[in-house]
Simulated assay, not measured.
Amino acid sequence: MTLIAQTIMRACAAAMLASSLGACSLFGIQFGTARLSEKECLMRAMYFESNRSSAEGMLAVGTVVMNRLYDAEYPKTVCGVVGQKNQFANGVLSRRMTDSGVVLAAQMADRVMRGERHSGVGPAQHFHTAGLRFPYNNMYYVLEAGGNEFYIKTRSR
């Protein structure tokens, strides 16, 4: 076989392998594609924004994402909400998820996608790291979970 034929065969094999990865998934994560599923976007927000060992914190973050999804002021897809500039952790849609928190995030994302919500979050659409305080009088705190404090923006008093 000539060198050119070998090169062509290797290129074809690589192309077939790459295309087959597009259908491969683990915990709902699609590998080999540039497009993330709605579940993966939700998982990533929950993974990067909460204490990775806290199911309650992940559920609370997932609830905020879904609360935003159903508000006209926010994008109409989970990935659009999670990918909004300056709203979630830097690199939330691109950084690697590397520890056992991935399994919990996948499980919690499934629950949120099926309609489960954290009752303590209620209609809250905002949160920040627990322990921080801001001088604004329009933040009504409803819950602390997973290293975050969740709040509802109210009219200034």
Score class of each variant (00 low, 15 high):
residue 11 A to Y: 13
residue 11 A to G: 09
residue 12 C to F: 15
residue 13 A to Y: 12
residue 13 A to R: 10
residue 13 A to P: 03
residue 14 A to S: 09
residue 14 A to L: 15
residue 15 A to E: 09
residue 16 M to D: 03
residue 19 S to H: 08
residue 19 S to C: 13
residue 19 S to P: 00
residue 20 S to P: 01
residue 20 S to T: 06
residue 23 A to Q: 05
residue 23 A to I: 03
residue 23 A to D: 02
residue 25 S to R: 11
residue 28 G to N: 01
residue 28 G to C: 05
residue 28 G to I: 03
residue 29 I to V: 12
residue 29 I to E: 05
residue 30 Q to Y: 11
residue 30 Q to T: 11
residue 32 G to T: 03
residue 32 G to V: 04
residue 32 G to K: 04
residue 34 A to P: 14
residue 36 L to R: 08
residue 38 E to I: 05
residue 40 E to N: 06
residue 40 E to K: 04
residue 41 C to K: 05
residue 41 C to Y: 08
residue 42 L to V: 00
residue 43 M to A: 06
residue 44 R to M: 07
residue 46 M to T: 00
residue 49 E to N: 07
residue 49 E to A: 11
residue 49 E to R: 05
residue 49 E to F: 13
residue 50 S to Y: 11
residue 51 N to A: 14
residue 51 N to I: 10
residue 52 R to G: 09
residue 52 R to W: 08
residue 52 R to N: 07
residue 54 S to H: 04
residue 57 G to N: 04
residue 59 L to Q: 01
residue 59 L to P: 00
residue 59 L to T: 02
residue 59 L to W: 07
residue 60 A to E: 05
residue 60 A to H: 06
residue 60 A to C: 06
residue 61 V to A: 01
residue 62 G to K: 07
residue 62 G to C: 06
residue 62 G to Q: 06
residue 64 V to A: 01
residue 64 V to I: 02
residue 64 V to S: 01
residue 65 V to T: 01
residue 65 V to Y: 10
residue 67 N to M: 03
residue 68 R to T: 00
residue 72 A to P: 15
residue 74 Y to N: 06
residue 74 Y to I: 00
residue 76 K to P: 02
residue 76 K to Q: 14
residue 77 T to G: 03
residue 77 T to W: 11
residue 78 V to Q: 02
residue 78 V to H: 02
residue 80 G to A: 10
residue 80 G to I: 11
residue 83 G to Q: 07
residue 85 K to D: 08
residue 86 N to P: 01
residue 86 N to H: 14
residue 86 N to V: 02
residue 86 N to K: 14
residue 87 Q to V: 10
residue 87 Q to N: 11
residue 88 F to Q: 02
residue 89 A to D: 07
residue 89 A to V: 13
residue 91 G to L: 11
residue 91 G to D: 07
residue 92 V to W: 08
residue 93 L to A: 04
residue 94 S to E: 13
residue 95 R to L: 15
residue 95 R to F: 14
residue 96 R to D: 11
residue 97 M to P: 03
residue 98 T to Q: 04
residue 98 T to L: 15
residue 100 S to E: 15
residue 100 S to P: 03
residue 101 G to N: 04
residue 101 G to I: 05
residue 104 L to K: 00
residue 105 A to N: 01
residue 106 A to V: 02
residue 108 M to E: 07
residue 108 M to D: 01
residue 108 M to P: 00
residue 109 A to K: 05
